[in-house]
Amino acid sequence: MLQQLKQKIQKLGFLDSAILPASFLGEEEPRFKAWLQKDMHGEMGYMNRNIDKRLNPSLLVDNAKTIIILLLNYFPESTQQDSSAPVLSKYAYGTDYHFVMKDKLKELLQFIQDEVAPCSGRPFVDSAPVLERAWARKAGLGWVGKNSNLISPHHGSYFFIGELIIDIELPYDEPKLVRDHCGRCTKCIDACPTKAIVADRVVDARKCISYQTIEVRGELDAELKGQFENRVFGCDICQDVCPWNLKSEPHNEAGLKPHPQLLTLQKQDWETMQRPLFNELFKKSAVKRTGFKGLQRNLRFINDDKANHNE
């Protein structure tokens, strides 16, 4: 049964996986609450809600017995061609990963129901109160790096994490804690232009370029002007410099492939972009989260950055 399940997971295109008992994550509570108490979540008020559900899977799925943690590669084959163009985070090149990954998780749930045993369950992809990195770390899929990302010793960190929580027991993988391989390396801390990595494995979201360009609903933090390094949506800097991402290999997931025109956009194309082109390029993209007006705001901000820098 376990072999069948693992074969299905591989067939669905997942990079790695682990099957664990759905247990209480009590060890994560003090760390998570300390981060919240320092207001490092910024405007992400949802992080301060449902803390009990983040720690206890049985509050998300009645009678939860098993959690399957899955990784999906999003490292692209190619990146933007114009080095002077505003930079888009690699994860946003293709269809919104919430849709791509949730479809795969639903198919996996259906497989378990059809081929293993009747059960109930729910898929989770970064949009519900699940401490995904904590589960992946507990499962032995990687360690939490100094930039707070999960890093796999086999695959680096360019992957999404999703979970399937179900109400039946399955044969469990033996969790093997992966030791921390960061050592004395501080490349991610040194490279972060806004100094958002305020301590080892602690990120102040309020200073993070990804948070500013995606989560902030009003104007961006004026104190961070001149520090975005041309990032218009999201930021990969701390991952780009991580030596473990030398292991990253391009994905072959059709849903995550970029729009044919996206990577060829020149600097001028971004700056003169109108809503019809935005809708065409990003109609199914995570970039819809900030919207056309949000993208324009971000473009103005980074253009002000460069204007101020050149004065």
Rank of each mutant, 00 (worst) to 15 (best):
Arg54Cys: 07
Tyr158Arg: 08
Thr290Asp: 10
Ala85Cys: 09
Gly145Asp: 03
Glu311Leu: 10
Lys138Asn: 08
Pro193Glu: 02
Glu163Arg: 06
Lys6Glu: 02
Tyr211Phe: 12
Leu177Cys: 12
Ile51Leu: 15
Lys293Ala: 12
Val198Met: 05
Ala64Met: 11
Gly226Ser: 09
Leu263Trp: 00
Asn279Glu: 15
Ile197Arg: 12
Val198Arg: 04
Leu265Thr: 04
Pro276Val: 12
Ile168Gln: 00
Asp173Ser: 03
Cys208Lys: 06
Gln239Phe: 09
Leu220Arg: 10
Pro193Thr: 09
Gln110Ile: 07
Gly291Glu: 10
Arg49Pro: 00
Cys235Asn: 03
Leu25Gln: 10
Pro171Met: 03
Arg122Leu: 12
Pro276Tyr: 01
Gln110Val: 06
Met44Phe: 01
Asp103Val: 10
Arg217His: 12
Gln113Tyr: 00
Leu131Arg: 13
Ser58Arg: 14
Lys225Glu: 14
Ala34Met: 05
Ser58Glu: 13
Asn303Leu: 15
Cys119Thr: 08
Pro153Gln: 04
Cys182Ser: 08
Leu5Phe: 02
Asn50Pro: 00
Asn310Gly: 01
Phe124Thr: 03
Ala34Asp: 07
Glu249Pro: 01
Gln261Gly: 15
Met273Ile: 00
Tyr211Ser: 03
Thr194Arg: 10
Pro118Ser: 05
Gly145Thr: 06
Leu131Met: 10
Gln10Leu: 11
Leu70Glu: 05
Asp180Met: 14
Lys267Val: 11
Asp173Leu: 06
Ile68Leu: 13
Gln3Ala: 13
Asn308Ser: 11
Ser89Lys: 00
Leu60Glu: 06
Leu59Asn: 05
Arg179Pro: 03
Pro243Asn: 14
Val125Gly: 08
Thr264Phe: 13
Asp269Lys: 02
His155Ile: 07
Val116Leu: 13
Leu262Arg: 09
Gly145Gln: 04
Val287Ile: 14
Arg49Thr: 12
Glu27Arg: 04
Gln3Trp: 01
Ala64Val: 10
Gly13Phe: 03
Leu71Asp: 04
Gly45Lys: 09
Glu29Gly: 04
Ala286Arg: 06
Leu220Thr: 14
Arg297Glu: 05
Pro118Tyr: 04
Met44Cys: 07
Tyr172Val: 03
Val203Ser: 05
Glu163Pro: 00
Ile69Pro: 02
Ile214Asn: 09
Lys11Ile: 10
Leu108Thr: 04
Asn279Ser: 11
Leu281Phe: 00
Arg300Met: 10
Ile67Trp: 02
Lys104His: 01
Lys146Glu: 11
Ile19Gln: 06
Arg206Ala: 12
Ser248Phe: 10
Ala117His: 09
Cys182His: 07
Asp236Asn: 05
Leu105Ile: 03
Lys102Val: 05
Lys284Tyr: 14
Arg179Ser: 13
Leu20Ile: 10
Leu246Gln: 15
Ala191Leu: 11
Arg49Glu: 08
Lys11Gly: 02
Ser58Val: 11
Gln81Val: 11
Thr66Lys: 03
Gln10Ser: 14
Phe228Val: 06
His41Trp: 05
Glu174Lys: 15
Cys182Val: 07
Gly145His: 02
Glu253Ser: 13
Ala254Asp: 13
Leu170Trp: 02
Gln239Asn: 02
Val125Asn: 09
Leu262Asp: 08
Ser120Arg: 02
Tyr158Lys: 05
Arg179Gly: 02
Asn56Gln: 11
Ile166Pro: 00
Pro76Leu: 07
Thr272Ser: 14
Met1Asp: 13
His41Val: 04
Ile166Val: 07
Ala196Thr: 00
Gly162Phe: 01
Asp96Glu: 05
Arg133Ile: 12
Val144Trp: 01
